[in-house]
Amino acid sequence: MTGAGAGRGRSPAAPPPVFLERQSYRRRRLIDAARLLPILGATLFAIPLLWPRGQGEGVDPVPTSSASLYIFSVWAGLIVLSGLFGYLARGQERSDDGSSGGSSDGNGGGAGEPGDV
């Protein structure tokens, strides 16, 4: 019985198509953006490492108030973006689950993931 299930998802006769329809394409790029988000966050949070600290000669150390402002702004920005991506990608899990059940829109979602990304 597993043979039948596995066979339907990836039948050897039909390899995944090279081109996707526009909607699926957009959705995958959205996921890409969501995946880049933590990298962006890590980079922005690493910027304080470059700030001068302590008592250098002729260099003013960054005051804590500005530092807080920067960190909390980046933080809030990440939260907003994360919420936005989550909202836009809310149909995504369903089509991922579709690889095990019946996928609604042909071969969107995870069926051909490794080859395509």
Binding site: A34, P38, F45, I79, S82
Partner: peptide, 10 residues
């Protein structure tokens, strides 16, 4: 943890 949560797709 914020980075982990934001990167939940990974």
């Amino acid at each position: 943890p914020t980075l982990v949560m934001v990167g939940w797709w990974w």
